[in-house]
Simulated assay, not measured.
Amino acid sequence: MPLVADGVPPVDLTAKPPPGRHVELPTRFGPVRLHLRETPGPDPLAPTAVHLHGLAGSSTNWTDLSRLLAGRMRSIALDLPGFGHSEPPPAFDFSRVGNAHVVIRLLESLDGPVHLSGNSFGAAVAIEVAATRPDLVDALTLISPAMPDLRLDPRRLSDPRLALAALPLVGARARRQLAAVTPAQRAEQLMRLCFADPAVVPPHRLAEAAAEFEERARLPWAGPSLGRTTVELLRSWLVPPARSLWRRLPEITAPTLVVWGSDDRVVTVRKGPRTAALIPRGRLLVLPRTGHVAQMERPRVVARAMLALQQADSW
Rank of each mutant, 00 (worst) to 15 (best):
R67K: 13
L68Y: 12
L68A: 13
L69G: 14
A70W: 14
G71E: 14
R72I: 13
M73R: 15
I76T: 08
G82P: 08
G82Y: 06
G84T: 04
G84W: 02
S86Y: 03
S86I: 04
P89M: 04
P90F: 01
F92S: 01
D93G: 09
D93N: 09
F94C: 06
V97H: 14
V97Q: 14
G98Y: 05
N99F: 13
N99I: 01
A100T: 04
H101T: 13
V102E: 05
V103Y: 01
V103A: 03
I104L: 11
R105K: 12
R105G: 12
E108D: 11
S109C: 01
L110D: 05
L110V: 04
D111F: 00
P113T: 00
V114W: 00
H115Q: 10
L116G: 03
N119K: 05
S120G: 10
G122K: 07
V125N: 07
A126H: 08
E128H: 14
E128I: 05
T132G: 02
R133Y: 00
P134W: 02
D135N: 01
L136F: 00
V137G: 01
V137L: 00
A139V: 00
T141E: 08
L142Y: 10
S144D: 15
S144K: 06
P145L: 10
M147E: 14
L150C: 10
R151A: 15
R151F: 08
P154K: 03
R155M: 08
R155V: 10
L157A: 04
S158P: 06
S158D: 12
S158I: 04
D159E: 11
R161Q: 06
R161V: 02
A163S: 10
A163C: 04
A163T: 03
L164C: 02
A165Y: 01
A165E: 02
A166E: 07
A166C: 00
P168T: 04
P168F: 04
L169D: 02
V170K: 01
V170D: 03
V170C: 01
